[in-house]
Amino acid sequence: MTQTVLVTGGAGYIGAHACKVLKAAGFTPVTFDNLNTGWQDAVKYGPFFKGDLMNRADVDAAFAQYQPVAVLHFAALSLVGESMTDPGKYWRVNVMGALNLIEGALAAGCKNFVFSSTCATYGDQDGVLLDEDSVQRPINSYGASKRAIEDMLANFGASHGLNHVIFRYFNVAGCDPEGEIGEQHVPETHLIPLMLDAVAGKRPALTVFGSDYPTRDGTCIRDYVHVMDLVAAHVLGLRWLLDGRGNRVFNLGTGTGFSVREVIDHSRAVTNRDVPIVEGARRAGDAVALVSGSARAMQELGWEPTRSNLRDMIGDAWTWAQGKGYSA
């Protein structure tokens, strides 16, 4: 009998990919999603429970029905710009939703929790290779809400024995190379799918937000990690907990930063098409450069980000972008 894992946000971009690799690793992933930003078509690898983390009764019902051995918590609001203009929404949904989930898990006797956090908890620390011991100074409400959930996990770990692994992501990109699932947001805010939509003529042009940053070409620098590498780390983190190895924080990135213009240049090489662009103003809350030190994940988890190069990330995303996508 396979072990069941509750995957919140499993109908979303990263969650759906996590369900795929969980199924391949011998687990039964149960998607818990309200479909506000997720897609029913992305639920392919296990049962679906339509529920909302803001409703504790939904959370309790899911645990009662499926009795998971662990939770992988991806569900969250994640738009940096929106978090700057409507911080209450992010504190309410992200933090209260996580609290309901944590308390529901503990009430059901489920004490293994893998949390999707973010490099946004570090804030803007230019010229620094960020590792797990770097100071956390979030500059937007999205990052602050994720930092608060990290603190919550530490508190419940100390008081109730909640075992947890926290992954702080850098920029996630790419898609399942087999084309079964992909990246699709409404509205779309991520650089690579926006860029490929512009290449394919699905939008007039890609807006480059800010060209006067103190970087080598004036545009923001980010560390990109392929979604399949990212979710592979989650399976390793899950096994870490099931093996009783204790609470741990891991960064997930490559240690290599690429500017917006460098990503655009790689796109031309992959698609053999020009990227129509327009120059825009800086966005509030955007850090200048975020680059990860991920030695801990590689050394302790044995994680290997084999697809986290721009050619594979853009190429896999381009394959998905030329397909039909999910039905609305």
Rank of each mutant, 00 (worst) to 15 (best):
F156V: 00
G143E: 13
C175N: 14
G143M: 07
D176T: 08
A144C: 11
F167V: 11
A158M: 11
G179C: 06
L162K: 04
V165G: 05
G179V: 06
H160W: 03
H164R: 07
D176H: 05
A158E: 15
N163H: 12
K146G: 07
D151I: 03
N163Y: 00
G179S: 07
A158C: 03
P177F: 09
D151W: 12
D176N: 13
N163V: 00
G179I: 02
G161P: 03
D176C: 05
L162G: 08
A154Y: 08
F156N: 00
Y142S: 11
A154M: 10
A144H: 09
F156C: 01
V172Y: 04
E178N: 14
L153Y: 03
F167G: 01
A148R: 05
C175G: 05
H160F: 10
K146E: 06
A148M: 15
D151T: 13
K146Q: 12
H164T: 08
G161Y: 09
G157L: 10
A144G: 15
D176W: 08
A148H: 04
A158N: 14
Y169A: 11
C175M: 07
G161I: 11
M152N: 01
K146S: 10
S159F: 01
P177T: 07
C175A: 15
V165L: 09
G161H: 04
Y169S: 13
G143W: 08
I166P: 01
M152T: 13
G179H: 04
N155I: 11
V165Y: 10
N155F: 14
A158F: 09
Y142A: 12
A144Q: 15
G174P: 07
F167H: 06
Y142M: 12
F170A: 02
N155E: 05
I149H: 04
V172D: 00
F167T: 03
A158W: 10
A154P: 02
L153W: 02
F170P: 03
A173S: 15
R147Y: 13
A173I: 10
A158G: 13
V165T: 14
Y142V: 14
H160T: 01
P177V: 08
R147G: 07
G179F: 06
G179T: 04
E178M: 06
G174H: 09
S145V: 07
I149K: 09
F156P: 00
I149R: 05
N155Q: 10
F167C: 06
S159C: 02
R147V: 09
G143A: 10
H164Q: 01
E178H: 08
S145A: 14
I166G: 04
A173T: 13
E150G: 11
R168V: 07
Y169T: 10
N163M: 00
N163K: 13
E150A: 11
A154H: 11
I166S: 03
H164M: 01
Y169C: 02
L162T: 07
E150T: 11
N171M: 11
A148S: 15
N171H: 11
K146L: 10
R168Q: 02
A158I: 01
L153K: 05
V172H: 08
S159N: 05
C175K: 03
M152C: 10
M152S: 07
P177D: 11
M152W: 02
A158T: 04
N163S: 13
E150D: 15
G157S: 15
S159L: 06
G143Q: 14
